[in-house]
């Protein structure tokens, strides 16, 4: 993924855009929130970077960072889930594929949950399910809006078997309880948001915003192609496609995200 590449690129002054090949100067790239100025490809952001890009400076306070996955199924023999987890935890200094906490948005407190595509493709297992459920519960108690940002190509995490599948129910019912008690939930779909994550909490926002050109859908494009044995039309399963078919409220570029969120919260919450 782009973000991993970006880590390697930190020490370089410039690199070639992976979409259009244009030369991008690293310092400029960071100033424009990791967007190629030539083709406007939005590079995936880490949760920390999302927080820096959107919310009030230094306002983030992390919650529940101590929650960690365990190898429920004993996947040990073949792929060693425990080792994989340990490796990813120390590499990214976080326990799983999500960061949750509180932020200020123009001084209004909100609860956020941001998935991380670097960590097993942002897939949802027990930890993502629990932390998402908790922010809706906290936000209900505190009377605050909830914002999630998803970059989850992996959907429900297969390493935790049917337990992962059930996290779709756990998170969806948490959204239901929160929303039916008057809570405001804004779901931001970043690149990519697919499968079990898309088919649960990410689809259940009062307002759903997509980043430009993100891959959004249920079944991955390769699986669809193999099933129907034909190639997919251009633009299939993009944000623009989902907007056209009525499944997202709007597409917002990264640099306009903060101001749009502020306006929405102002209209609907304040």
């Amino acid at each position: 993924m782009g973000s991993t590449k970006n880590d390697q690129q930190v020490h370089q002054a410039w690199f070639k855009c992976e979409k259009c090949g244009n030369i991008i100067y690293y310092r400029e790239f960071k100033e424009v929130l990791d967007i190629c100025q030539s083709c406007s490809y939005h590079y995936p952001l880490t949760p920390q970077r999302w927080i820096d890009c959107i919310f009030d400076e230094d306002s983030f306070e992390e919650l529940d960072r101590q929650i960690a996955s365990v190898d429920i199924l004993g996947f040990a023999e073949q792929i060693n889930y425990s080792n994989k987890l340990r490796e990813l935890r120390s590499k990214f200094e976080q326990n799983d594929a999500i960061i949750t906490g509180t932020v200020e948005l123009d001084s209004q407190t909100a609860y956020v949950g941001i998935t991380d595509s670097r960590f097993l493709m942002g897939s949802m297992g027990s930890v993502v399910g629990e932390k998402i459920s908790r922010i809706f519960e906290y936000a209900h108690d505190a009377g605050c809006p909830v914002i999630t940002i998803t970059t989850s190509g992996g959907g429900a995490r297969m390493h935790e078997g049917a337990i992962s599948l059930m996290q779709m129910v756990k998170t969806s019912q948490a959204v239901r309880k929160y929303r039916s008690n008057g809570g405001l939930y804004i779901s931001i779909l970043a690149n990519p948001t697919m499968a079990g994550v898309m088919a649960s909490f990410a689809a259940l926002g009062d307002i759903i915003i997509a980043e430009p050109k993100a891959l959004i859908g249920f079944t991955g494009p390769r699986v669809i192609e193999q099933t129907i044995k034909q190639s997919l039309p251009p633009g299939f399963q993009t944000s623009e496609f989902m907007l056209q078919h009525g499944f997202v409220d709007m597409i917002v570029e990264r640099k306009g995200m903060r101001s749009m969120l502020t306006k929405l919260v102002d209209y609907l919450w304040l």
Partner: peptide, 20 residues
């Protein structure tokens, strides 16, 4: 897994069902 299923929001349909 098909084109029509995605066009008509498979993920949204499943999510709404779970939710309700």
């Amino acid at each position: 897994p098909g084109i029509g299923a995605e066009e008509r929001g498979q993920a949204w349909a499943i999510a709404e069902n779970i939710f309700e």
